[in-house]
Amino acid sequence: MMQKLKRKLNGLRRSPRSVIAVLFAGLIVVGSGYTAVNASVSSERTVEYTKEDIEYGKKLFLSNCASCHGKNAEGTANGPSLIGVGAASVDFQVSTGRMPGAASGPQLQVKPVQFTEEEIHAMAAFVASLGAGPSVPDAAYLQANGDPTKGGELFRINCAMCHNAAGAGGALTEGKYAPSLDNSSPKIIYEAMVTGPQNMPVFNDANISPEEKNDIITYLVYLRESASVGGEELGGLGPVVEGLVSWFGLLGIIIAITIWLGAKSN
């Protein structure tokens, strides 16, 4: 896993074109970040990717996505329209491996990622070119340097009912579920909030501002990185697991001891 990542990074570093692309994208992201601060309603803003990106993205799109989403991303019976979903949506779905989707189920699963960062960037560029939508978030809001108290409050009010107070995930109806946030990067968390993937609602910038999103990320990163003060956390799943441990761990050990205690010594 790590090796794969390294190889990917190396590949990225070696290719001059990707260096330019990354730099360029960085500039755009920073630039759009400024607009985001001013924009009062949402992250919907058009980002200009290079023509090359868009064309490369289109090629990738046609060979990998068009069968479900339609040749012009207008959507088919098997997949929704991607016009106006924005680059953030593409980045979220593809870089978590949810897209390309596997066999049908209640919801898309996290799978091994199928594309390189470069390819994902290109596809995001193509989809962003189709219509205005949330763009890939500004790195400034992914620093986890916000206010964890505010983040915790917002998390509990807007997120905990599905994702659990400790971010351990939870059940939705008919086999759907809100995933655990333990392994989600700040960028993925941010993108999920602005795009509302699958059944998750959208939290646009008017509802939760980019700074507040950073607060939420700060809180989650704090939870993840701070020591578990009480010891093994039992999955953060709460009283049910604690009950099972008390029966099968605590009482189990004690019963094993009572059997030793009651057995005749030789």
């Binding site: 807007n158 509302g196 609602p201 939290f203 008017a206």
Partner: peptide, 21 residues
Amino acid sequence: ARDPYGTPIKASDVTIGSVYH
């Protein structure tokens, strides 16, 4: 208004698919 900070909400803020507490 938004929970818990009490900022009032405009109809235009509420995009399709949004949920406000």
